[in-house]
């Protein structure tokens, strides 16, 4: 299932990249090296409108700021496995929301030495889907009607909403709910800085509320 999700959403990027005037090679390689849709979209769209090089770098970098807390929260799962730890800079390069969320959900229950295999398998599956999707989207962009392309793009956020609906830890659930509430509001205040602030405030609030609930005896637990 992750394979087809990534395939479909990267098809959306492929068609956008073509419209933006990127070459097929650059589009496909960007899926592998940037490996994060919001950053790639910023890259393609700002390039198309002729933004300065520095602005493109900043915007795509900011759009992928989420990878900082994501890699920090995922790496402890691989810390005790010597071989996986040696590959840590590669592990985070291959990380996407998909591989991160699935590894965080299934990884802790796995024996230490199996996590590496699980994660790499997942990453290779997603990366293959992403690269094929980008190329397909680029090549087929003109032959799809509007409602098909837009549905392919819609598939991506919907998939993540249901992926996160399966999260069990109370502090994570709180962070998701508060983040979902604040995300659009903060975006209105600042499209560039809204998201990092939303993450910090929603995450801190969730962390604090969870601590308070644990501290009070007889409090509800999920």
């Amino acid at each position: 299932m992750p394979f087809f999700m990534v395939l479909a959403s990267m098809m959306g990027f492929g068609s956008l990249a073509r419209e933006s005037g990127l070459s097929l090679g650059v589009s496909v390689v960007s899926s592998a090296t940037v490996w994060g849709l919001p950053g790639q979209v910023a890259f393609a769209e700002l390039f198309a409108v002729g933004a300065p090089v520095l602005a493109i770098m900043l915007a795509s970098s900011m759009a992928n700021l989420r990878f900082l807390p994501m890699s920090m929260s995922m790496l402890p799962l691989f810390r005790t496995d010597q071989r996986a730890w040696r590959w840590r800079y590669i592990l985070v390069a291959l990380m996407s929301i998909n591989t991160w969320a699935l590894t965080l959900r299934h990884g802790p229950a796995m024996p230490q030495d199996q996590r590496f295999h699980y994660y790499m398998g997942l990453c290779i599956t997603c990366m293959t889907g992403g690269l094929i999707g980008t190329a397909l989207g680029y090549l087929l962009a003109v032959s799809f009607p509007f409602f098909v392309i837009v549905s392919l793009i819609y598939l991506n956020p919907v998939y993540f909403i249901f992926l996160f609906s399966g999260v069990r830890h109370r502090n994570c659930i709180l962070a998701l709910l508060i983040g979902a509430l604040l995300g659009p509001l903060f975006h209105l205040i600042s499209p560039d800085w809204g998201l990092p602030f939303c993450g910090i405030i929603a995450g801190s609030a969730a962390f604090w509320i969870d601590k308070r609930m644990k501290a009070s005896p007889g409090g509800p637990s999920l």
């Binding site: 929260s73 983040g179 993450g199 929603a202 995450g203």
Partner: peptide, 8 residues
């Protein structure tokens, strides 16, 4: 971890 979930 909470910040990552909040951001996503």
């Amino acid at each position: 971890n909470c910040v990552a979930y909040g951001m996503l």
